[in-house]
Amino acid sequence: MSPETRSGTKAAAAPAADVIHNIGYRNYDGPRLGRAYARRSLFSQSLRGAYGLGRSAKSKVLPMILLAVMCAPAVILVAVTITTQQEKLPVQYTRYAVLLQGVIGLFLAAQAPQSVSRDLRYKSVPLYFSRPIERVDYVVAKFAAMASALFMLTGVPLVILYIGALLAKLDFVDQTKGFAQGIVSVALLSLLFAGIGLVVAALTPRRGFGVAAVIAVLTISYGAVSTIQGIADTQGSTDVIPWLGLFSPITVIDGVQTAFLSASSSFPGGYGPSAGQGVVYVIVLLGLIAGAYGLLMRRYRKVGL
């Protein structure tokens, strides 16, 4: 560490002229790939990071377990379908993510703070902004990475279901259509959840708060909405049920796919939104995604350097 040891190693290396190491400084005159490449690098680093890749072994445990938990029901469903020679899959493609929303929520709660709170907490953000990328690149890369991580989490089980369905020799056209609708649905879900998770997580540099806050936002909103919907259902005021669904992320997705992706609604009594209400759902969905992006941009205007 001290100058003595440094020069000592140099002196030791110098006499052996044929050693491989050239101790002198070498300039770099290779290519510099610029902003778009840096953005891609940040994206892939964040996406890998969401599954613990490139991080410690410990941080791989939770995301990998959640991915396995996400896929296990799909494998079981496929096995049941094939052995009992069902006519169709026991679960709609579009319904799968709604059923397992708890797992998705846990994944988001664990990984969104990992992605953004960490940079805030250890103040690494200025290092990013002292490089060719701009604020928009950072936000886009983080957003896209989180959405892609969620898309993998929710998409892989659908792929398992689809392959299983084809192995069970179910109707190809039906299955492909259902699978495509399911994929569109989880893509929208991934964007929405990523946005919400990142906005909440970016508010605090404390990872623990971030985890708790994301879980709170998802479960409280869903709990409140489904409870009130349940009350409305028992009291017979079924008209308000579809409107209530606008107030929690997962029910927004449920409403959109009920209206446009021929999903059967998971709302109490199956009172999903009509096509007209569905338009409102889509507007709200896109508004939430855009709003999350806008809030993140605002957040990082303050934080940068």
Binding site: Y37, A38, P126, P132
Partner: peptide
């Protein structure tokens, strides 16, 4: 241009090599 901030800016859970490699890529190095 390189920039070294005044404050602490290093995440504790990665090695120096991983961190600096990442930062090099953020600067556009293949």
């Amino acid at each position: 241009v390189g920039y070294m901030p005044e404050h602490d800016c290093l995440p504790p859970d990665v090695s120096a090599t991983e961190f600096v490699v990442h930062m090099a890529r953020m600067s556009g190095l293949p």
